[in-house]
Design a protein around this nucleic acid. Structure first.
Length: 422
RNA sequence: GGAGACGUCGCAUAGUCCGGCCGAGUGCACCACCCUGCUAAGGUGGAGUCCCCGUAAGGGGACCAGGGGUUCAAAUCCCCUCGUCUCCGCCA
């Protein structure tokens, strides 16, 4: 949720943000009108309530013989209070609905427009060249007996897979390498719940435009998380944090579930787009003044990972229209996937400024002693999908795959993954 | 799955039976000051969160797990939900 004060005092800024996102500026006017109506309704209720409170004290103190008359009077007042109270509650709800239609105010410099309007910030690493026809990750995965899509489909359906043998080890190695990276940077490891309550899913902003992407268990009214961000953001919901010693940083390790509704036919081959995968996610709670610097730090750690794995990649500054409602800026790191001759997203890091924290009621105490919403940021350090880029980038003519040096320690010293003869 | 107990301001608790004098007492912790010849003890005062009006000083409202109800009036009575604990049963 955006800052109601900003809406009141600088609606034009909010409108410009909406325009950059390609969304309606009318939402801003609607929300402002709802804000005015809400405040008027609250004022009306509160003055009536004050009257009732004062009157109630008189009734309590009054001698017996006068009580009956006073109570009769109070009854009438009570009816008016009740009416004003529900009017105020309605106005409050209307305001909340209106303000929640507005996305986070994008940061200056974020390119306007939609999915294809990103800025490329930099390209790093050499695009691999092969003296042979490179195999795609699934062909390699099957040669190595590392990925089994057929059995995944048999057991769970399309877009499910088994990681087997070196495939399973590779994923654990990546995740563990990411975890070590995070721990080195001062993150606290956290293995998170993957089923969460509606209010947490709502609070993190995933029940809006992306609702159809999310698995829901109606019998228990719980949602399966599509990213550990949900549980990591919910972790400190309704709390006042102490940030006087710097940011609170968590590295969440969890399985993620996505319905992939609306992506039928896209990335149907292999493990690029699957319903269930694992992810190691950084999550920071910071003083809003430090948010943009933290964002750069998260991006830096992500790039360290890709560089250590010998992957060619580029960093893009995602356009406003492709941000999602909570983010004010988002950088994606995309690795080169040789057989697709394209960069594909491996990580994403978002600065949600105070937007997410406001909804989840996460605050910190400022130097003046007042409370204020914190800023939240998240960023990926490893996921199942990375296996795609690693296998394809480091493959050799015989179908074997050279293990990047940085990963060998996590694979018991294994330096080459060899095809399995069956 | 069955039975029961409980959920109060950072922590620990009082208040709930008998509704109004309870936004709420006490202890610890905390902050300021005072006192004390020293890492202890004592004294005085302060201190919750959110919202509304106001430039401000200040005023007002809400909040006793959450939601609803009864009532002129609810921490207190009733209902539902969530959570914690204990016992029994069951289980990968």
């Amino acid at each position: 949720m955006i800052d109601p004060l900003l809406l009141r005092e600088n609606p034009d800024l909010v409108k410009r943000s909406q325009e950059a996102r390609g969304e309606s500026t009318a939402f801003v006017d609607d929300a402002r009108a709802a804000d005015g109506a809400r405040r008027a309704a609250i004022a009306a209720f509160e003055s009536l309530r004050a009257e009732q409170n004062a009157f109630g004290k008189q009734v309590a103190k009054a001698p017996k013989e006068e009580k009956a008359a006073l109570v009769a009077q109070a009854q009438e007042l009570a009816a008016r209070v009740k009416e004003a109270s529900s009017a105020a509650a309605d106005a409050e709800a209307a305001f909340t609905t209106a303000v929640q239609r507005i996305g986070n105010v994008v940061i200056d410099g974020v390119p306007a427009g939609g999915e294809d309007d990103y800025d490329v910030l930099r390209e790093v690493g050499d695009i691999p060249a092969f003296g042979f026809e490179p195999r795609d990750h699934l062909e390699l995965g099957e040669l190595l007996d590392a990925i089994d899509m057929q059995r995944g489909a048999k057991v769970s359906g399309a877009r499910f897979h088994y990681l087997k043998g070196v495939g399973a080890r590779l994923e654990l190695a990546l995740m563990t390498m990411g975890l070590d990276k995070a721990i080195g940077a001062g993150f606290t490891p956290l293995i998170t719940p993957t089923l969460v309550r509606p209010e947490i899913m709502q609070g993190t902003g995933f029940l809006g435009a992306h609702a159809e992407e999310i698995y829901h268990l109606p019998d228990d009214d719980l949602y399966l998380t599509g990213t550990s961000e949900v549980a990591l953001a919910g972790y400190h919901a309704d709390e006042i944090l102490d940030l006087s010693n710097g940011p609170l940083r968590y590295a969440g390790w969890s399985t993620c579930y996505r319905r992939e509704a609306g992506s039928h036919g896209r990335d149907t081959r292999g493990i690029i787009r699957v319903h269930q995968f694992n992810k190691l996610e950084m999550f920071s709670y910071v003083d809003p003044a430090d948010a943009e610097a933290e964002h750069e730090r998260l991006l830096g750690w992500q790039e360290d990972m890709l560089q250590a794995l010998g992957l060619a990649y580029r960093v893009i500054d995602t356009a406003a229209g492709d941000l999602g409602s909570s983010a004010a800026r988002k950088y994606d790191v995309e690795a080169w996937v040789p057989t697709q001759e394209a960069y594909r997203e491996l990580t994403s890091t978002s600065n949600c400024t105070t937007f997410q924290a406001r909804r989840l009621d996460i605050r910190h105490r400022t130097e003046s002693g007042k409370t204020a919403p914190v800023a939240t940021l998240n960023g990926t350090l490893a996921t199942t999908r990375w296996i795609v880029a690693i296998l394809e980038t480091h493959q050799q003519a015989d179908g074997s795959v050279v293990v990047p040096e940085a990963l060998r320690g996590y694979l018991g010293g294994l330096s080459v993954l060899e095809p399995v003869v069956r």
